[in-house]
Write a protein that binds this DNA or RNA. Sequence first.
DNA 1: TAACTTACCGTAAACGTTTACGGTAATTAC
DNA 2: GTAATTACCGTAAACGTTTACGGTAAGTTA
Lengths: 345, 345
Amino acid sequence: MSKRTKLKDIADRLGVSITTVSRALNNKADINDETKREILELARQLEYRPNSLAISLRRNNTVPLVGVILPIINHYFFATVLKGIMSKAHLHNSLIIVGESLQDEKKEKKILNQFMDQGVSGIIIAPARNSNFEENIIPILHKRIPVVVIDRMYDNYKGNYVLTNDYNAAHKAVQHLLDNGYKKIAHIGSVDDKSIGTERKRGYIAALHQAKIDINEDYIILNDIDNPDLAIEKGFNATAKLFELPNPPDAIFAVTDDVAIGVIEYAKENNISIPDDLGLVGFSNAKMSNYIRPRLTTIEQNGFAMGQLAFDFFNKASSSNGEVFQKSFELNLIVRESSVQKSEV
Amino acid sequence: MSKRTKLKDIADRLGVSITTVSRALNNKADINDETKREILELARQLEYRPNSLAISLRRNNTVPLVGVILPIINHYFFATVLKGIMSKAHLHNSLIIVGESLQDEKKEKKILNQFMDQGVSGIIIAPARNSNFEENIIPILHKRIPVVVIDRMYDNYKGNYVLTNDYNAAHKAVQHLLDNGYKKIAHIGSVDDKSIGTERKRGYIAALHQAKIDINEDYIILNDIDNPDLAIEKGFNATAKLFELPNPPDAIFAVTDDVAIGVIEYAKENNISIPDDLGLVGFSNAKMSNYIRPRLTTIEQNGFAMGQLAFDFFNKASSSNGEVFQKSFELNLIVRESSVQKSEV
DNA sequence: TAACTTACCGTAAACGTTTACGGTAATTAC
DNA sequence: GTAATTACCGTAAACGTTTACGGTAAGTTA
């Protein structure tokens, strides 16, 4: 692999100055047509490609670049967060450079480093499940580049973030099931050392606690649901396990709409009626949740607003001195068919 | 707004050299603790932020940047295309910078210009519906930067592309309905001056033609379905219109799974049985299509593979001299419940 | 005391461009 | 034939960093 050709290479080979080469390639005046032709020709041969760093540096026209890292890019929630970020970025003439960590903290770190090399002026990150704060984030903060953490949380993190109050939301979901007469409420959750799974489980437990209902450990099944394609299957299998119990639950709070879909699939195959035999609440308000039957009660998660706010926070953090911006969104319950027994309607 | 502070500003104020400042900020050796402290302190006061362009330039670690423009970023298909692109980009240590045109060619152009300013080494674009080739793409080609067009097509475009054979796929879908005994097949399509809508409609017509069935113009309803949230509603309304006809169809080929969902919703509300009273085929194999009832027969669209190939094409085009890379994917029909009458099974 | 080491700091080149400015030769104007 | 213009090209500075190298003063060693 030879070195990348630069202006000087072309200039030397043709016995002209760098300036002349630059003029030719940029279509400027003050250059002979024949010279220009030769330069263009040689540039083509040598596969010349301008070094954008040098150009931007010289022109002093740095387009603010913001790096965004998401665990999974084609997940509706994250894609919508990205959309929110981009909508704001577009207004501020910023550009968005994105990376997908695939829940791999090594990959996350590599992308982060590339982002720094590329010269981002900020980072918005939904951390990978096992993301290492010390190793991945601290070096960026040392470079004094603003970081906004979104969706998931680091322990003892003191910086900018945009989160959702998963604890309250889960509490609300379970309370809703209780209010509708369900008593034996199970939880199909996710193993997660970051906030999400844990918080939702905490909310679930708290709601039962408050209702003075004992926690039945058999009613709690935790899965790795990172892969959205497998999440449905995981939900299906977990439901099967729950119904093998001597005393199966009469309601399920699923950590995700995908998981809830799995519950529904199992119920259909086994003639379990939702909501009559089994109440069900999901989480996320995936598009699908309004079109499957029964229509799924779920928690609305406004990814778009979160993305927008994340960009706003980055923006504020850029022009302020160490001030910290934090927001935790409260989430609404959307009541549909899956959690309200028909006799009760 | 004052100018951005640079090393020199700090150096001047403190009467030290730029080198010393650099050493302090980068935690290098050969510097007195007290000097370092002062520099760090002043840097904080002046809100020093390193110019990463200069850093990367000096360090010579340019990361190849590829610009990706998509009409809608949180649409599953496009998000998956993006995922495919990124998977390959990651292998080649490239970075992806993305923009969302929202089907607006002015916006598309603005993003394209920003990409050029930022110095991308390639463009992968799924053109907006009314994207202007002359105005938006030609200038990039003039800069000798590889362009790969994806999903949609420009008229008379001669460059690199990764497409799907929508004509054949639509033909296949309609043929499948014919094979299953449906005779009065309607089409809920999309108005579209680019390839997609037109090609699917062409395939629909061709299949009927071949079966010697006359085209009934009342059976063709075209919508603007750019907004995926509205697409379901559009499908619903179109179906309503079809069933107001004196002689309603007995099958529908929908241009999109979302539109097909709308058909299903209408059918459920009006006690029309799918597939018995009405056959239905969608397009895209959205995740949802396998979990609604009846499970939807559809065309599989492998966005991931398309994205991967698009990046490969960019890559090849980068290191080849004017060679052109083109691919049109053949798409498979996925037969599920919505198109096979139970009596026939 | 002479030689050597250490701690600290500055000079200047380099990364790959763009561009203001000046220069030469040829052409045109008068 | 002189002056002015034009066409073409090069020199060098600049963008904001990093870093190899050298230098000085103080401390250390023998």
